[in-house]
Design a protein around this nucleic acid. Structure first.
Length: 203
DNA sequence: TAGTATCG
DNA sequence: GCTC
């Protein structure tokens, strides 16, 4: 175990090694179940540009982007309701989120080895007093965090498999993104890539 | 503008 | 190549 277990990145709380390897394996199996019920899709921005990340979701709502805009939807684009959020993720929320509501959405983001996520805000939710909690699985990723204005200075950290990041308080609306993955940096998924699970209160 | 390209 |  490393010495550093927790750090603050522009107000974003990073909990390193929150999940032991066995818990990561179990969570990965839950994710595979979600993806059987709700297959990954490659979304496009409202301007029509594809995201490099592929997405699915669990819970009452999933986050969607297409030519119609950014929004939450109660159903997968194929018309099926999203599968339930696994209990182990609800337990992580209770343990770390310090929220007074339960998450209504678990976004599942699949990063192929060359996928990235540009700097953005999570601002399609109704209640910004509720935190956003994300779990990393698989390859390490450079996570960049700024402030509430796009021009604010940024800092970055390498997120590893099993790490948790929480956008809360004044950092709830912090701009953030994923610069790049570090290839072959995890034994969890030997074929490479990264999964990010993001729990949010939507309404 | 949850995109991409580019720079010192 | 990496960082900001």
């Amino acid at each position: 175990m490393g010495i550093l277990q927790e750090l603050d990145l522009n107000g974003v709380r990073i909990i390193q090694e929150a999940l032991r390897p066995e818990a990561q394996v179990a969570l990965l199996e839950e994710v595979r179940g979600i993806l059987r019920a709700a297959p990954l899709v490659q979304p496009v921005t409202p301007s029509g540009r594809p995201l490099s990340v592929r997405m699915s979701a669990a819970g009452d709502y999933g986050w969607i982007t297409d030519r119609g805009g950014y929004r939450y939807e109660a159903r997968h684009p194929n018309g099926a309701p999203w599968p339930p959020i696994p209990d182990c993720l609800l337990e992580l929320w209770e343990l770390y989120a310090e929220a007074n509501r339960l998450p209504e959405s678990c976004l599942v983001n699949w990063y192929a080895p060359d996928a990235r996520m540009g700097l953005h805000q999570d601002n399609d939710e109704a209640d910004f007093s509720q935190p956003v909690l994300s779990v990393s699985l698989g390859d390490e990723a450079r996570f960049r965090v700024g402030g509430i204005n796009r021009s604010d200075p940024t800092r970055s950290v390498w997120l590893k498999s099993g790490d948790i990041a929480i956008l809360h308080g004044k950092a709830r609306l912090a701009f953030h993104g994923i610069d790049k993955l570090r290839p072959n940096s995890s034994r969890l998924m030997p074929s490479g890539g990264r999964i990010n699970l993001t729990l949010r209160v939507v309404t």
